[in-house]
């Protein structure tokens, strides 16, 4: 007897699935190809020639470095904020029962369900009303709103799967609150936090909409790329940057995927 999984799909379905995957991923390959084209004004197909000179050009453009370092800074700080707030919130919601618990859970998740443009406009008018000048910190605050959600979701799922009596067992065996956090809670939620943190970082790193509304004169990397497309100057440089961004965001997401997958087995072992 063979299981259903081994019966081959019809050939038409296979072709359709392949075409779907190609449609999703070919454009990304095109970006890579144009990063090496010799033509700098328009995207001409096929590329008239291939060159690696744009890598060097990109390396020597100070505006790119500025945008990149701003993006890294914003992503790092907003991820850090999200890790602290998201974890604490998840712990409260999953460990205790209190009035308004479900409401808080919904309100934490809401920013990611809202269109970014709504979050952006809301934040912009809020900053205006309270006379907060636009700066790196307003971008960070904007990004933190959706980063918290990602961390919260990961942490809350892990907390639900870990038995509450673990904390009691640790206390019972002589560990105070801090030791319990360090030796029991952290090891059990670490992979969930890492996964949530990586996703949050990746989300922040390529965010455009909220950033447009909360940034002043500064440019994060995605904003810089958008500007470059409007006013063409050394066009393939944008492609080089895009290629780097794809690689930089792809790795953490892949890592997060593997970590949460293993986490299922680790967290399930308690009972």
């Amino acid at each position: 007897m063979r299981s259903d999984g081994n019966i081959g799909a019809p050939i038409g379905l296979k072709i359709a699935a392949g075409a779907g995957l190609l449609f999703l991923h070919l454009p990304i390959l095109l970006i890579f190809v144009y990063a090496f084209t010799t033509e700098e004004r328009s995207y001409q197909w096929p590329p008239p020639g291939l060159t690696t000179k744009w890598l060097a050009v990109t390396w020597n453009r100070p505006d790119i470095w500025e945008a990149l370092s701003l993006s890294l800074k914003v992503a790092t700080v907003s991820t850090a904020i999200a890790l602290v707030l998201g974890t604490l919130c998840a712990a409260a919601v999953s460990r205790t029962r209190f009035f308004g618990r479900e409401t808080i859970s919904l309100m934490v998740i809401l920013p990611i369900a809202l269109p970014g443009i709504v979050t952006g406009i809301a934040l912009r008018s809020a900053f205006n009303l309270s006379d907060i000048p636009f700066s790196t910190w307003t971008i960070i605050l904007g990004h933190a709103t959706f980063c918290v959600v990602v961390v919260y979701n990961n942490a809350v799922a892990r907390f639900r799967r870990t038995s509450a009596s673990l904390v009691e067992a640790s206390m019972d065996l002589g560990a105070d609150g801090f030791q319990t956090l360090r030796y029991v809670i952290m090891p059990n939620i670490a992979t969930a936090l890492l996964a949530g943190g990586m996703l949050a970082f990746a989300l922040s790193f390529d965010e455009v909409i909220v950033t447009t509304f909360t940034a002043g004169q500064q440019q994060t990397l995605p904003i810089w790329m958008l500007e470059e497309l409007v006013r063409p100057r050394q066009r393939p440089v944008t492609n080089v940057v895009a290629m780097v961004v794809v690689l930089v965001t792809f790795l953490p997401i892949l890592g997060a995927f593997y970590l949460t997958r293993d986490g299922d087995q680790i967290a399930g072992g308690g009972k």
């Binding site: 038995s163 009596s165 673990l166 009691e168 067992a169 206390m171 019972d172 059990n188 308690g270």
Partner: peptide, 21 residues
């Protein structure tokens, strides 16, 4: 007196073994 300062230890109903150890 918090649990960690009592000379009393517990065997839990669900055992509460630490899954990461």
């Amino acid at each position: 007196v918090p649990p960690f300062r009592r000379n009393v230890n517990t065997v839990f109903q669900d055992y509460a073994l630490f899954p990461h150890l």
